[in-house]
Amino acid sequence: MSNEDRISNWQLIKNGIFKENTIFRLVISLCPSIAVTNSVKNGFLLGVAVLFVQTMVNTTVAIFRKFIHPKIRIPIFMLIISGWVTVVDMVMAAYARAAYKEIGLYIQIIVAFASILARAEMFASKNRVCNAFFDGLGSGLGFLLALVLISFFRELLGRGSLWGFHIVQAKPMLIFILPAGGFLAVGLLMAFFNWIDMRFYGGKGAGGASGH
């Protein structure tokens, strides 16, 4: 653990956003990245919800990490995750009704996001509270960024608008707001980032160890 202590919090955040970006690097939790990203607003809102849940779950798990029995750690992580998701769900239903109507269904599905359990198991259960908090913040921000980026392209191409405001007058490319276009957008963006990584940083693409 002493080894981990030396990593600065800023590095943890950067790590979550770039090197271990949930969607473009680790390639997990792809379901929400396709289901909710047909408008920037929805992508952003779900990203914020995930950011909150991820940070709180990481912190909670780190607080209890010495107390949790290793044999039942996964069920306990799940309980913690679903507890925080329910909190977000109820708060949004009460105070952010317009947003809740759009993405309410997906808020409840956050429980099953692989990325949240992965961070809790991989990092938070082995590290100090402060580090776990910043790790959750970083990976949540990375997820938020990826969702906003994907939805930016999809809404711009598919509706000709951004955050609901009309920008382009040309006939939009409908396929990008349909699920099929979601796969296309994620794939093309991933290919683009891999290309940048390989071309300019000498990386090996998604899954490969790229040190930047």
């Binding site: 209890f64 107390f67 949790i68 029995h69 044999k71 039942i72 306990i76 309980l79 913690i80 507890g83 329910t86 909190v87 109820m90 708060v91 239903a93 009460a94 105070y95």
Partner: peptide, 29 residues
């Protein structure tokens, strides 16, 4: 004993938290 204690604490703490949030939000909803 430890596993039982684990589960009890998580349930009680989680339950209390959820009950508190529910009490606050449900009338508004």
């Amino acid at each position: 004993f430890k596993i039982t204690a684990n589960l009890v604490v998580i349930y009680v703490v989680g339950g209390l938290l959820l009950a508190f949030v529910y009490a606050k939000t449900s009338p508004i909803i």
